[in-house]
């Protein structure tokens, strides 16, 4: 009986919960709320986020969080393989949209953030990771980007003039912030991004458990 329940729960997580979670991230990752109009603004993932998502997928494979041979293989039924490949596709777009939610929309900061993400992900390709360390590293990477974009930059560019704007105004008197131009959004955008990233990291944790039955494995060092 417990074996039946286990396989049923596993199927629910693998075929319903994980793809739904990743698709929700894909939906919310590009959603912003206009500062003045309070209307929805949907921002499709820029090309650079697709590149970042490819690097992240490779990192997930290399770090052992995604064991491709466990999810797709000759010994599995075709429908199961199709469902697992579909789940990987949803993970790819969720990754792209997770980056989209923490990247500034335009200007120099967009390229600076993209460069730092590319640099970090590229360097990590050559580091030794186990799934736990990889998860922690990704949570910190997205968390830091979230704090920079939705707390520091949002305060800097808020129309009401946040605390950082006043500090920056004092420190950078006379210097133009024009090159660091970024659109300002309603505070709700930050909440949406927070939950988007929370869903994404939760999905990755579940993926780690789903791929390895009950616990996250650690690489023997």
């Amino acid at each position: 009986m417990s074996q039946t329940n286990r396989s049923r729960n596993r199927a629910l997580v693998d075929f319903v919960l994980l793809p739904s979670l990743f698709l929700t991230v894909a939906l919310l990752g590009g959603l912003r709320i206009g500062a003045e109009s309070r209307t929805f603004i949907f921002i499709a993932p820029p090309l650079v986020t697709l590149l970042l998502a490819v690097l992240l997928m490779l990192l997930l494979l290399r770090g052992g969080l995604l064991s491709f041979h466990q999810w797709v293989g000759n010994d599995l039924p075709p429908l199961t393989n199709v469902a697992h490949i579909w789940m990987f596709i949803t993970l790819f777009f969720a990754s792209a949209q997770a980056f989209n939610s923490v990247l500034p929309e335009r200007g120099l900061l967009h390229w600076l953030f993209s460069f730092f993400f590319l640099w970090t992900l590229w360097n990590n390709q050559f580091s030794s990771f186990d799934p736990r360390r990889l998860l922690r590293s990704l949570a910190v990477l997205f968390g830091t980007a979230f704090v920079f974009k939705h707390m520091l930059l949002a305060s800097l560019y808020s129309p009401e003039g946040g605390w950082l704007k006043r500090v920056a105004g004092t420190l950078l008197q006379g210097a133009a912030l024009g090159t660091l131009d970024a659109p300002s959004f309603a505070p709700a955008t930050g909440y949406i991004a927070f939950f988007t990233l929370a869903f994404y990291v939760t999905g990755l944790i579940l993926l780690g458990f789903a791929g390895h039955k009950n616990e996250l494995p650690q690489k023997s060092t």
Binding site: T4, A11, L12, F15, S20, L79
Partner: peptide, 16 residues
């Protein structure tokens, strides 16, 4: 039952 969940999950998530 797992098969049903699989098919239903696939259909639901594709619609989503």
């Amino acid at each position: 039952q797992s098969k049903i969940i699989q098919v239903a999950g696939l259909a639901f998530t594709i619609a989503y």
